[in-house]
């Protein structure tokens, strides 16, 4: 047990190292996503102009940008393996669960970096009132965890289909809607300056959603990944 467990961890570490190294060398995901985020934010900023927005609008705009940024970025994680024909080698090298967890952790790290950059730029350009910054960070952290959890298995499905560019948002939206509604609501409360107690149910929901979707993905990933 102990030996197989450590083998599992070392395989996971190897996969993660490969993805991070590749990302570090090409900087594909982070560069493309950063430009996307800047473009979207500047557009929103121009559209808003000098008007002050309500907390609800700030929360909605922030999550719309995060959603589409994750759609354009996370889809790559499996598509690149299929494009370069490295997927069969990966199938031989590691069991399906390791591949899923490795990609999930990688996607989560990418999204975390991206969410931090988007949040800073958002604060810089749109200047929303910041009621409780700690709660805002917590909500975005949990939201991004659920977002990458659900998107990873859907990206694996999309990588094996045609018209990959448009398919991921179409498939993800109904699955992510409960998460997005809850996250937007909790973000609004955080901007208005509410405490953790005001959104405890929402936070619990975000955790539950993440746990359930990742568990289901672990059970189902083998069917998507194997030939």
């Amino acid at each position: 047990m102990g030996k197989s467990c450590s083998l599992w961890v070392s395989r996971l570490a190897a996969l993660l190292k490969k993805d991070l190294l590749e990302e570090f060398r090409t900087r594909y995901a982070i560069n493309a996503l950063l430009m996307f985020a800047v473009t979207a934010l500047v557009m929103v900023s121009f559209a808003v102009g000098v008007n002050t927005l309500s907390a609800t609008l700030h929360a909605a705009l922030l999550w719309i940008i995060l959603f589409f940024a994750s759609m354009s970025g996370l889809g790559r994680s499996f598509v690149k393996e299929e494009e370069k024909n490295t997927a069969p080698a990966l199938r031989l090298a590691a069991p399906a669960e390791v591949v899923y967890v490795g990609k999930l952790v990688f996607n989560f790290l990418i999204m975390l970096v991206l969410a931090a950059l988007i949040l800073l730029l958002y604060l810089f350009l749109l200047n929303p009132p910041l009621g409780s910054p700690a709660l805002l960070v917590l909500v975005i952290f949990l939201g991004v965890a659920g977002l990458s959890g659900a998107t990873t298995i859907l990206a694996a499905i999309v990588a094996r289909a045609a018209n990959q560019g448009t398919l991921l948002p179409v498939l993800s939206f109904p699955v992510l809607l409960p998460l997005l509604i809850t996250a937007i609501n909790a973000t609004r409360v955080a901007i208005e300056g509410g405490g953790v107690g005001d959104v405890s149910q929402g936070l619990l929901f975000l955790v539950a959603y993440g746990v359930i979707i990742i568990t289901a993905s672990l059970l189902l990933f083998d069917f998507v990944w194997s030939d």
Partner: peptide, 18 residues
């Protein structure tokens, strides 16, 4: 068949939440 089945199950999870 396999991919569609997986999507159907993943999507179904979000329904009770909603």
């Amino acid at each position: 068949a396999r991919l569609a089945a997986v999507y159907s199950i993943v999507a179904f999870i979000s329904v009770p939440f909603l």
